[in-house]
Design a protein around this nucleic acid. Structure first.
Ligand SMILES: [Mn+2]
Ligand SMILES: [Mn+2]
Ligand SMILES: [Zn+2]
Ligand SMILES: [Zn+2]
Lengths: 151, 151
DNA sequence: CAGAAAGTTGATAATCTTTCTAATTAAGTG
DNA sequence: CACTTAATTAGAAAGATTATCAACTTTCTG
């Protein structure tokens, strides 16, 4: 049961004077078909599409990911060093946050209704229109704590 | 009343087999003398030091910012497109979060004890050693909502 | 006080991301 | 279905960040 259909994406884009292109539709579909807890980098998406016979240039992929994040359709995450990851920005019962080990990048997702409420309330109080709120917890996982490596 | 002195930084570095260098001490000092609500990019820091007659190479600056973020001394923030910002990672009464307009990058800091508690509790439950937790709210500010520009 | 071992720096190369531009394409109009 | 207009794309260039490596510094050993 996808949140966005091609039609609703088109409507939202046109509202701002933008256009629905095959590239944008394809990229949205990839994220809607993505398994829970999966996150894609720009390169992941690029090669995933290549394997399916679709060619979308890397610059279009980067541009589209940014655009959809700014629209509130995708979330941009810093899960690992060196590159960003993206996932669908889903509403309440699916909305979640991330706990990340700064050493090995192991990541755990968790939900919190109170945080979502604080986020909404804070945005509202300042007159901001909320797109997404994400708690990022940086920490050291049990394994890395035990590790003797100084890194 | 700085949290870290040169001595305590040295102690924490040595504990992991690392060393306190003049460059690291200088960079820590810059952040400790930074006004509340200020955030620095790697380039900001680079040119700020140049103006004070200190030369630290950009690669050392990037390396040190990463190191201190992984140690929990600094926080790495995505406040604007294209580059990261850093600030001191301060404990409870100073600990705060960020509300950001995705269009104009206007940013508001706010505090929340409940979020800090949820963050600590979540890390603890999973056996993670907490370094930092930051709520990032992406939204559209009142001015940009009124703006007719489609961007 | 040598000499060895390990960490750090600065310069450079590699990688990731954003910006720029000419050619193309979606959307609106008659 | 032309035709106009403005947004979008692909590719190249520029910018930001990370990785690599030789020279240097600090710490440890004998
Ligand atoms: Mn997730
Ligand atoms: Mn701040
Ligand atoms: Zn770990
Ligand atoms: Zn704004």
């Amino acid at each position: 049961m996808p949140i966005y259909t091609a039609a609703s994406l088109k409507a939202e884009l046109n509202e701002k004077g933008w256009r629905l292109t095959p590239q944008r539709e394809t990229i949205l579909q990839v994220f809607q078909n993505l398994a829970e807890g999966k996150h894609l980098s720009a390169e992941d998406l690029y090669y995933m599409l290549q394997n399916e016979g679709e060619h979308i240039s890397l610059s279009t992929i980067y541009r589209t990911l940014k655009l959809m994040a700014r629209m509130g359709i995708l979330r941009e995450l810093e899960l690992a060093e060196g590159h960003k990851h993206y996932e669908l920005n889903q509403p309440y019962p699916y909305h979640h946050h991330h706990l990340i080990c700064v050493r090995c990048n192991k990541m755990i997702e968790f939900k919190s209704e109170p945080i979502l409420k604080i986020g909404s309330k804070t945005a509202q109080k300042e007159g901001y229109h909320l797109l997404d709120c994400q708690l990022t917890i940086h920490a050291v996982c049990p394994t890395c704590q035990r590790s003797l490596l100084p890194a």
